[in-house]
């Protein structure tokens, strides 16, 4: 049965993030105050990296259950980690744990024990900074992702298949990405094909968000249908996690969200990266 491989230090899996950094990502989320989409995504990715590190932390250190890469595309296409990880495509999670660019103090609302909330300062490691500019060379980013995964799968043929999380707010400016997406999802390990999430961010306050649809019939345009068609089906375990988040999904629910606000992006990141079989 596919998507059941054990994830262990000797058989790690891989998460690859493809992040749109085009000029339009400097716009704010329509309903999230003054938060720029690029900043919201950077926060979500940094928070997720932190979660992945903590998930792999054991008393003796961080276990390398995951190899992680972040590829940005906009004015240029390439690895987007900062600091000591600059230029690296896929990095074992223990190396990520020990190499944040900096650690910021952020305020977090916590229970004050008297029915209210108070701000508490928490440490927030940063590995990836927002940057925006240029067009949307989606095909080039996908083909770079394919090359990275092909190489990784050559060394990890028994792995739980890599999960690619592609976050974008607009249409490709270097051609139809359908073929490049098919090439990514046609890669496989012995446990199944690479899983592709297409997370589309909202640009228009009147746009209705759609989460994990099982049909393209309600989608507004060809671009949305392309992202839907190219996205993978959610695995049974991902469906369980989605149900925990309160989503009621159809049989053929896909790894696709349209016009997402930040909360939906964060939920989708959790659904895509929660391991089912960690050893």
């Amino acid at each position: 049965m596919p998507y059941t491989a054990e994830i262990s230090r000797s058989n790690p899996t891989c998460f690859l993030f493809l992040i749109d950094q085009s000029g339009s990502m400097a716009d704010v989320f329509p309903t999230e105050g003054a938060k720029r989409k690029a900043d919201g995504v950077a926060d979500a990715i940094n928070k997720l990296l932190q979660t992945l590190v903590i998930r792999c932390a054991k008393e003796e250190g961080v276990r390398d259950y995951f190899h992680v890469g972040v590829i940005g595309y906009g004015a240029s296409v390439g690895p987007a980690f900062g600091g000591a990880l600059s230029g690296k495509e896929l990095v074992p999670i223990s190396e990520i744990a020990n190499s944040p660019v900096r650690v910021e103090e952020r305020a977090k609302k916590v229970d004050d024990g008297a029915g209210g909330l108070v701000d508490q300062n928490v440490r927030f490691p940063i590995w990836f900074d927002a940057t925006t500019g240029g067009g949307t060379p989606m095909c080039q980013a996908l083909s770079q992702g394919k090359r990275i995964l092909q190489q990784w799968l050559g060394q990890h043929s028994g792995s739980f298949p890599p999960v690619v999380i592609h976050i974008t707010d607009g249409e490709s400016t270097d051609g139809d990405p359908s073929q490049a997406m098919r090439e990514v999802t046609s890669l496989s390990s012995n446990d199944g094909n690479v899983l592709l999430f297409n997370l589309h961010l909202s640009s228009n306050p009147s746009a209705v968000s759609t989460a994990f649809p099982d049909s393209s019939s309600q989608l507004p345009d060809q671009f949305a249908r392309t992202l839907f068609d190219s996205a993978s089906l959610l695995t049974p375990f991902m469906r369980t996690v989605a149900a925990e988040h309160g989503f009621r999904l159809g049989e053929g629910a896909k790894c696709f969200v349209l016009n997402a606000e930040l909360v939906l992006v964060i939920q989708a990141l959790d659904i895509g990266t929660r391991p089912s079989n960690l050893r």
């Binding site: 932190q50 590190v53 903590i54 932390a57 008393e59 250190g61 744990a97 650690v103 490691p125």
Partner: peptide, 14 residues
């Protein structure tokens, strides 16, 4: 027991 020695940030948060 677990607080016997200083821990890295991820162990603290875990």
């Amino acid at each position: 027991f677990v607080r016997k020695k200083p821990l890295p940030w991820y162990s603290e948060q875990k």
